[in-house]
Simulated scan of single mutants.
Amino acid sequence: MNETHATVAPGAPVFPPGRYGRRREPGRRRPLTAALLAAVLLAGLVLAAWQLYAKYGDPAYDPQLITYTDITDSQVQVTFRVTVPAGGSATCQLRARDRAGAEVGRDEVTVTARPGDTHVTTRHRVATTARPFIGEVLRCRPAA
């Protein structure tokens, strides 16, 4: 079909016939494809949230850094409090970093609450390979 001034909407460009190939009809929408993509995206987000919660989000094992002291060229003392279920145990990861933010020491310590107690305060020495600037409690999780 050739385009003429009668078949072209006003304001639309007029192309010479046979020059630019066949004109396509407007594409039909594919709601199934969009729904499948949305479902895959949602499943990926749920999986990522689940993994992040498992890694960082257990509120029953909540660590709080109290202080870090006794900084030398080869150690830092980290004092922290962790909330655990009564009579339970937690494994906590401690880290020491230098002024530039590089990790210079890491240690894992297991703390156990006394029966009837839910807060455990612990002081632990983290050995380092260089002079640390800060001591941190990365996370605590149920002891295995």
Results as ranks from 00 to 15, higher is better:
Val14Gly: 04
Val120Ala: 01
Lys55Ala: 15
Thr33Asp: 11
Phe80Ser: 02
Arg97Trp: 00
Asp107Ile: 02
Ala48Trp: 09
Ser74Cys: 00
Leu37Lys: 10
Asp62Gln: 11
Arg81Phe: 01
His5Glu: 10
Ala35Cys: 04
Leu52Glu: 14
Ala100Asp: 15
Val111Phe: 02
Leu37Cys: 13
Ala90Phe: 05
Ala127Pro: 01
Arg19Pro: 00
Gly18Arg: 09
Pro10Cys: 02
Ala100Ser: 15
Arg30Tyr: 04
Lys55Ile: 09
Glu103Val: 14
Asp117Tyr: 03
Pro63Glu: 03
Ala6Arg: 08
Gly88Thr: 05
Ala127Gln: 14
Arg30His: 10
Val82Ser: 02
Arg97Gln: 07
Arg29Ile: 06
Val76Ser: 10
Val78Leu: 01
Ala6Trp: 02
Asp98His: 08
Tyr53Pro: 00
Pro31Leu: 11
Glu136Thr: 14
Gln64Ile: 11
Thr110Arg: 14
Leu138His: 06
Ala34Lys: 13
Phe15Asn: 10
Leu37Arg: 12
Val111Ala: 03
Glu25Ser: 02
Gly135Trp: 14
Thr67Cys: 00
Trp50Cys: 01
Trp50Met: 03
Asp107Thr: 14
Glu3Phe: 05
Cys140Gln: 08
Leu37Trp: 11
Arg19His: 05
Val46Trp: 10
Ala54Ser: 14
Ala100His: 12
Arg19Phe: 01
Ala90Asp: 06
Cys140Val: 09
Ala86Ser: 15
Gly21Glu: 03
Asp62Glu: 10
Pro63Thr: 09
Leu37Ser: 12
Leu37Pro: 08
Pro115Tyr: 06
Ala39Ser: 11
Gly135Lys: 13
Thr121His: 01
